[in-house]
Design a protein around this nucleic acid. Sequence first.
RNA 1: GCGCGCUUAGCUCAGUGGUAGAGCACAUCCUUCACACGGAUGGGGUCGCAGGUUCGAACCCUGCAGCGCGCACCA
Length: 891
Amino acid sequence: MSELPKAYEPRAVEEKWYAAWIEGRCFEADPSSAKPGYSIVIPPPNVTGILHLGHVLNNTLQDILARRARQSGKEVLWLPGTDHAGIATQAKVERVLRESEGTTRHALGREEFLKRVWEFKDTHGDIIIRQLKRLGCSCDWSRERFTMDESYSRWVSHVFVELFKEGLIYRGRRIVNWCPVSLTALSDEEVIMTPRKSKLYFVRYELADGSGRHLAVSTTRPETLMGDVAVAVNPKDPRYAEFVGLTVRRPFPAAEIPVIADEHVDMEFGTGALKITPAHDKADFEISLRHGLEIIDVLTPDGRIDCPQCPDLHGLDRFEARKVAAAKLEELGLLIKVEDYENSVGYSERAQVPVEPRISMQWFLRYPCAGEAADAVADGRITFRPARWAKTYAHWMEHLQDWCISRQLWWGHRIPVWYRKDKLDALKQAAALGMEDFTRGDIHVAIDPPDDSDDWVRDDDVMDTWFSSWLWPFATMAEPGGNSALLRKFYPTDDLVTGPDILFFWVARMIMAGLRFTGDIPFRNVFFTSIIRDLQGRKMSKSLGNSPDPVELMDRYGADGLRFGLMRIAPVGSDLRFDEHSVEEGRNFANKLYNACRLRQMAGGGCVPPADPQDLPPYHIDILAKLDALAEDLVAGFAGYRFGEIAQRLHEFLWSEFCDKFLEAVKPDLRDGASEAARNATLATFDAVMSRYLQLLSPYMPHIAEELSARMGYISDGEFVMNRRLPETRLVDFDADVAQAKAAAVYESAGRLRNLKTECNVATRRDLRFIVRNHPAWIDAESRVLAMLAGAATISLEPDYDPPKGTPAAVTPCGECYLPLEGLVDVAAERARLEKEIAKIRGEVARCEAKLGNPGFVDRAPADVVDQEKARLADWIGKLDRLQAMLDALS
RNA sequence: GCGCGCUUAGCUCAGUGGUAGAGCACAUCCUUCACACGGAUGGGGUCGCAGGUUCGAACCCUGCAGCGCGCACCA
């Protein structure tokens, strides 16, 4: 027999099989296949991203689903690709340019900058793809897509044009979330509300009539005071009724502004008087529209004060200006007081600075098919797992706000709108643009530029990245507006696996886009993964440095080990606390499996054809039946998407059932001197179980399953276990209950005997003799196995045995077992043990008696529960009597 | 303010009304010919708190507390 290394070494094996699968085109989907289709689209990772544990979890789940579907006879398409990730990628390339060339995108110009981004994408874009391959992902790489591919880009423009024509996309001057670092608008979803300690300033606005009376206004943002155009009070507020219609003096720059009444003002908050700064607050903006007020913008796009009339503030950063403005008010005697205050401030997801509500011209989308999309989840056409996310979804869908889809970036899909050069100024000034301007011919909205393109100027902005991502399930499968064999075979997709953090960003929007542009839902099931946290419960993040590098983990534990370890601890609905120990366990599990097969290989003898299973010893029948049970449990587990439970079952079967019990029980059959029949039966059983087990394991640990299947000869050359159909027959098609009961009795008894040995302090001795009486008849044939499992020299069956007083004993399913130790027993220790045991059992007896003495229980509980309790009581009492006798004998 | 989760062994978590479970960690022992990435044995929990329903509650109901998340508001 060839010398196999003692420990499994995954690295080379995993690389070898991944290459073989690619070579064998195992992952490629055939849309013309007669088999039923099954499809998943990958949540496209950022093209310049690198693999983190969230990706590992997410993509392992998808790979398991895809591989299981292949085994179940489906034609599988797992469609991979990457996302151009507008802000993230542009920011990354800008940083690289700054650090390596000391230049900026503006210095390079739009065209040159985009060239650089494409170069960057070409050199770094496949890192994460290579990492996914390392993990073993069975994506159809021949169909890899990128959100800025030519045809995908046409889809994005097509959708924009269609929605524009439908009147759902419009351009308008609104308050948007502005990121002063990225210098672009953001959607509401990209703003993270964070509680922050700040100050509430109470400012005196004196009446312009010289009466000396004043209004006290409370504000957190004195630095925008220069943009004030009014002070508002609630019309129902009696305190201020007389002020409405008068004017007050704005502290600086000096101006008289009106006091107005508006329902929005909360009388309870602060002083009940609100300064109105329309350019820098959404509510103020809306009030200004209602009252026809002027809008004064006092901030630059990068968040500095733009107010030449106030030279001491002009040009200051907004937070610096806040302090200066407060000091200025103090100087003027207009600052009444400052209170500590905690409020929530919106932060830019990416730049991690507070966003600025800013008025600007942007493109907006009113969502299509919103009602139908809400219904699709509510009525179960789309299933969310865990189901509770459906509620979150429904809530969001009920409160849909128009989506700001334009971004002031260069990297992305440019808005497909051209303006007539001679109308440009007028169009720029317009408060809103829509269908009317289009039909008048002032703007051109189409996938392609206008013919006389010299007379037109294209819109500078690009679209929000998610405005391309929301088309992913179908835009990856067909040309714009078109149909394809792929789409017909694989759309709607079956499962979507993603994180709940992008429910609004992506999932909800995909449902609406799918319904609008294909007339069908994009997927049938959405499986929301856990959020991975560290052991302290913190989110994984780069800045905390608590995010382990999955590639390093794979280097140390193997891709299979990482996959299996993660799956085993992935809870169904809640967050996952990552512990590297679990990956280590995954690796250990692979090693255990490998060594079980090594044992088989060392026994040699090729693949022996199975004997008639009915004639096999009970251990063999037992393990065959347990494999059948495992296969069934997996069917149920997959139906319920209980991935963690499945991993647990796979682990338990191999380790506890197959190795700890079966292999230990049959070891003698593999040694020299065993009978040929016994040896054959054992080898055949091993192979029957292991070949199927490897198949069941294959979706979770595909590499080692393939390696061992090949090495053990379970598959032929050129065949792959990943492509083999799951068998529909059972290994045991007869009643195995008797055999299984015997096997269980022996395993259980062996445990009790080992336990007895430990208690008698002879755990390591192997020369002991157990004497058994009151045993079932069949035990005769199994006593040798029982002796071996118990670590005893012999088991003597002596029905008439009369144990000397004080002989240690254990009641087992295989009879009363005695361990005569002739002087080896420490009497005092044995007494102590017995007394302890007796006390414990008295407690149990008392509990049982109390329960059975309760008329309510006896009358009302189901008969079988009561019987069970009675049997239990009888057991305890019997055991108590025996122990008491042993104790008496000792004295 | 509204909503959703969670609270079970030292840790991470299973457990849908009938004797509290697993893995890890811990302790003791074992380098016996598949595996020390291993084997054997053991200790360890009044299931967050208080009520209620029930013969019986970790489980169902109510309230409370703590932790986490989402949404809204925030002058």
